[in-house]
Design a protein around this nucleic acid. Structure first.
Length: 599
RNA sequence: GGCCUCAUAGUUCAAGGGAUAGAACAAAAGUUUCCUAAACUUUAGAUCCAGGUUCGAAUCCUGGUGAGGUCACCA
């Protein structure tokens, strides 16, 4: 594994050591860790050591300690040019040569900030995980983008990652669509109608629901309560019967089930492809719930679970401050929890190198996962310590919550088309991309539309709710995906116009303030990737990309790049632009956003 | 009601216990001899309330208020 040198991190490490030995020498104390901070721009300096936390270990005047440390560091660290002290803050200024050395180390590094896989252990990330009776909607989009991005971030931090999903292909909901299709379908298929498979099946689910409601209202005559009617609608009884047939393995039912599920999978795959996401492996509930049942009986033997008189099996979590939770029904059939236990164990069996799992699931299931993780720990699985529920907030519309039954959902495929349309309209209005082939333009419009959507969703902290207004769509100005993409495209224009050999080493000795700002901004990217992986938060990367772009734009506007005074300076600035471009590209890649060479 | 999450400019989002709480959109004003004006530069504007912890709190703790979620032999 090639060691990747990240000078800023190295510098911090060596400064930490220096400060620690300085403190030991003079005050005879061990300071376990040194706190660093980027120096705010209103103060002189590049990197700041905060002295206040040291006061816990040694009493004294923070400013005096800071001055002492400043002197010490200045004489012992060759990278430091000067220092100043304000209260307990020791601000250090780096020499230009330190900047240049750092810059030269990343300049041609196309993988800057991206670590190679360095661990033997793998992490499995689950995301998307839809039901097979409805098309994907905006809520799924947040899930999918988050899960995919977190996978990419984990990979970039040096982890091995398997992307997966659990497909809820089992249960009464799919039977409802099947039934409606049998009754009204006339043998329709996605091929015969040209309708996307998931949409077709979703339509029959709606048809079922309409018929069901009609039957309920018919039954709800005097003498029949509404509750009664809901339970006894003929179509529902028929669906329940079908589920029993499916569970008993009736060949015709299973055949229909297989056919319709495959239509749905095909439809989903097309949406995933449009979104630019993929999976390494798939799990189906129909295949894992049995294993879950097996482990419930094992847990029963071990005393982890208890059986009640009626035959249902429970897990007592009252010691942990939670409730009792059912893990198997009285009739011996599996519940949600049963199959999740089975799925987790199955995954570990299939991929023994998996030492942790991330579940991308909405926050309405916080409690479920708390319980699931606890049960797996109680069952004695060591890897259960490394399970993480990547919980995210809902996507709300201005009209309120999305409800599929009320038709207030934003369809995923429609949304992608709308975003592309918006990108096309705006581009045409601005007169961009003239002289490009139709095909090429469409490719870029889609890239921009998706960039806007992805960035809009990922820049928000996962646990917060998002308000999404489809009418206003998504901005293309300011802190947005297209703005970042646009800056990348402009950088590419600079590179196209700069007609010299990039292999030439820059001989620049003195740096402009703006140049330093940019290099500083570049430096923090690798650390940020680690931090984002640690927090499972794409939002950090998104906001970083935007900051970097702001720094670049300011640089771009205030000093000449191609028209710099000296040849060396010109080369340096072009090279700097190139490095910024590479970093933007790498950062956006972690968000699943692609960049156009021109837009 | 019990438990969980959230609350920051008019709006949408930032801020690993650190310095004067940052951006963007919307509003007002300015900048195109130069690499893409989808840009840049100004101006104005915010931590829900009350306590506590400490050198220092938007951040941690307690109690309110408000919004959402969850408390199924549904998934």
């Amino acid at each position: 594994m090639p060691e990747i040198l990240i000078p800023l991190m190295l510098l911090k490490a060596s400064l930490s050591e220096l400060v620690q030995s300085a403190m030991a020498q003079r005050f005879k104390v061990d300071i376990p860790s040194i706190e660093f901070q980027e120096t705010p721009k209103e103060f002189e300096g590049d990197i700041t050591i905060v002295v206040f936390p040291m006061l816990r270990y040694i009493k004294g005047n923070p400013a005096e300690i800071a001055r002492y440390l400043g002197e010490y560091v200045l004489t012992h660290a060759p990278e430091i040019a000067e220092f100043n002290v304000i209260k307990g803050f020791l601000n250090l200024s780096l020499k230009d040569s330190a900047y240049i050395r750092f810059f030269n180390s990343i300049r041609e590094n196309h993988e800057f900030g991206i670590q190679k896989t360095s661990s033997e252990d793998a992490i499995m990330v689950e995301y998307s995980s839809p039901n097979t009776n409805k098309p994907l909607h905006l809520g799924h989009i947040r899930n999918i983008l988050l899960g995919y991005s977190v996978s990419e971030i984990l990979k970039a931090s040096g982890k091995k990652v398997y992307k997966t999903q659990i497909i809820n292909d089992r249960g009464i909901h799919i039977c409802k669509s099947m039934l409606a299709w049998q009754r009204f379908g006339n043998g329709e298929t996605p091929e015969s109608t040209g309708v996307k498979g998931d949409k077709l099946v979703g339509n029959y689910y709606v048809k079922y629901d309409q018929l069901y409601k009609q039957q309920v209202s018919e039954l709800k005559t005097p003498g029949h309560s509404e509750e009664d009617a809901k339970k006894n609608a003929p179509i529902l009884l028929e669906a329940q019967d079908m589920l029993r047939q499916w569970e008993s393995g009736d060949p015709k039912t299973v055949e229909l089930w297989t056919m319709m599920n495959n239509w749905v999978y095909d439809g989903f795959e097309r949406t995933y492809k449009h979104l630019g996401v993929d999976f390494d492996t798939y799990y189906y509930e129909s295949q894992t719930y049995l294993l879950g049942k097996a482990f419930v009986s094992e847990g029963l033997k071990k005393g982890v679970f208890l059986k009640k008189e009626d035959g249902s099996v429970w897990c007592d979590l009252t010691d942990e401050g939670l409730d009792e939770k059912i893990v198997l029904r009285a009739d011996g059939t599996a519940v949600y929890m049963t199959q999740d236990i089975g799925t987790a164990i199955q995954r570990k069996k299939d991929y023994p190198d998996v030492e942790g799992m991330v579940y991308t699931v909405g926050n309405e299931q916080d409690y479920h996962f708390k319980v699931l993780f606890l049960i797996l720990k109680k069952l004695g699985f060591s890897w259960a310590e490394n399970l993480y529920h990547l919980s995210y907030g809902m996507v709300d519309l201005p009209s309120g919550k999305m409800k599929s039954r009320e038709g207030t959902v934003v369809d995923a495929d429609d949304l992608i088309v709308e975003m592309t349309d918006t990108a096309r309209d705006i581009s045409k209005e601005l007169g961009k991309l003239e002289g490009y082939s139709e095909e090429e333009r469409e490719r870029i419009f889609k890239m921009i539309g998706l960039g806007a959507l992805k960035y809009f969703i990922l820049k928000v902290d996962p646990k917060k709710r998002i308000l999404f207004d489809p009418k206003e769509s998504v901005d293309f100005q300011g802190n947005t995906g297209p703005f970042i993409q646009y800056t990348y495209a402009r950088i590419q224009a600079i590179l196209r116009k700069a007609e010299f050999d990039f292999a030439v080493d820059s001989r620049v000795q003195q740096l402009d303030e703006k140049e330093k700002d940019l290099i500083k901004q570049l430096e923090i990217f690798p650390e940020l990737v680690q931090q984002a992986a640690h927090n499972y938060s794409p939002a950090l990367i998104a906001n970083y990309s935007y900051d970097l772009v702001k720094f670049f734009n300011s640089f771009y506007q205030s000093i000449p790049i191609l028209g710099a005074e000296s040849e060396d300076q010109r080369i340096f600035r072009v090279q700097l632009s190139k490095a910024v471009g590479l970093t933007i590209k790498n950062a956006l890649k972690l968000l699943g956003i692609t960049v156009p060479e021109r837009m």
